[in-house]
Amino acid sequence: MKRLVVSLVAVALVAGCGVRPTEVLDGGAPASGIPEGMRIYFASDRGLRGVSRPDKEITELAAAVKLVMAGPNEAELVAGLTDLTAITGEFSASAIEGHVTLRLPRTPVTGVAGMAAGQLVCTLARAESLLHGTRPDAVRVTVVAQGGAVGPYQCSQFLTG
């Protein structure tokens, strides 16, 4: 009897599970998680949220900062988005091999903390990616402001699930 059970199990294993082999199937194009064009980031009660600015073509990093400074549009305000940055006066932004430096000589370093820093970091990471082809997750942003510097940061440090 024991031999019969072992034989039946062996036959079942050889027979397989009934799934027939198929040809290789094409799964289509890979998923692309990053939308095209410029994205800027604003604060909300659920953390940072990126919004598209497909009609805005940037040619320098400072232009991305200006987009944030312009604030959310009417629909974004209704959706609860806000600009927490407190940039005053002149500023400049530069990048060397994915390392972005934002200089805010007249803005107190306290004005670029928390989600305000996240708005700038994530927006600049996107801009650096568009301008120089750096992967957004490889961009590091340092903000030099009145009274000190913060960073270097990556955008992922500010995004919540």
Rank of each mutant, 00 (worst) to 15 (best):
L8W: 05
T82N: 06
T82C: 10
R39E: 07
M115P: 07
A127H: 06
V112D: 00
I40F: 01
G98S: 12
H99E: 15
L104T: 04
P108G: 13
E23L: 08
C155S: 02
V65L: 04
I40C: 00
D55W: 09
V144R: 10
A95H: 11
G37V: 00
A29S: 12
V144P: 01
V19D: 14
I96R: 15
A10Q: 14
L102Q: 09
P152H: 03
S156G: 07
V68Y: 06
A125W: 00
A75C: 01
T123M: 02
T22Y: 12
A12L: 13
A113Y: 13
V109T: 11
V51R: 02
S94W: 01
A149N: 03
P35I: 05
G98A: 09
Q146P: 00
V9T: 15
F42M: 04
P152C: 06
V65A: 03
L124C: 03
Q157S: 10
P72R: 01
S156P: 05
L81M: 11
A75M: 02
V68G: 06
M38H: 05
F91G: 01
S94E: 14
G27R: 15
K56P: 02
C17M: 11
R53N: 05
R39F: 05
V100I: 03
G89D: 07
G147V: 05
G114F: 12
P21W: 03
